[in-house]
């Protein structure tokens, strides 16, 4: 990635972060590492939460986004409630997930990213999630054969009437589409 492009990503990131409540607190990070120590998946990340902020300051955000790191965040908010500087790091992770996706970094290829995208498509279509459709979309976008590994799980769920096939759409679907359209244009 070119330095110019990298700078652009950083600027977009900061502009978006500063529009979220308390986003400006990011500047207060003292690199104490409380976030990394609190993170349940931190040990599996290529860059820990503390390192992500260090990378941002060094203009190396693109390196973070070339890995699966941001998608290991499961939104448990442990870092957010513990940060002594009041940084809402979970919101930072959300922003990085979106950034990696919108700018075409490798992070978008994470299976969790594909699950999230399948979720958005399903909800945009019906106004609600339809778990059956979500899983079909997900396995088609990753490895359809890996769905076989879930065979017994699916069967056990089905036997208990817990595997829904038909989506429950909402009545106000058309109005909701207008709202989503308006939010997308304003973005």
């Amino acid at each position: 990635m070119q330095a110019v492009e990298s700078e652009k990503v950083k600027q977009t990131f900061l502009a978006n972060i500063y529009s979220i409540p308390y986003g400006e607190r990011l500047a207060e990070c003292q690199q104490c590492g409380t976030c990394s120590a609190s993170c349940p998946t931190g040990e599996r990340m290529d860059y820990s939460p503390r390192e992500i902020i260090a990378a941002l300051r060094a203009g190396l955000l693109d390196r973070v986004l070339e890995t699966n790191t941001v998608w290991l965040c499961s939104s448990c908010y442990s870092c957010t409630v513990r940060c002594p500087a009041g940084i809402k790091f979970t919101d930072v992770m959300y922003e990085l997930k979106r950034l990696g996706n919108d700018y075409g970094f490798k992070s978008r290829k994470s299976p969790t990213a594909k699950m999230a995208k399948s979720f958005v498509k399903t909800v945009d279509r019906h106004g609600r999630n339809a778990e059956g459709e979500l899983l079909v979309r997900y396995y088609l976008s990753t490895n359809p054969l890996s769905a076989l590994k879930q065979f017994w799980f699916g069967l056990r769920m089905m036997l208990r009437g817990r595997m829904p096939f038909l989506p429950h759409g909402i009545k106000g679907r058309n109005d909701l589409k207008k709202m989503i359209q308006a939010a997308t244009e304003g973005a």
Partner: peptide, 21 residues
């Protein structure tokens, strides 16, 4: 006629749309 809450998975892709949902 409630709709999706704009869950974690949606928020991770589209922020404003998630808030609108």
């Amino acid at each position: 006629d409630w709709n999706c809450c704009g869950a974690t998975a949606y928020m991770a892709i589209r922020e404003k749309r998630s808030f609108v949902l």
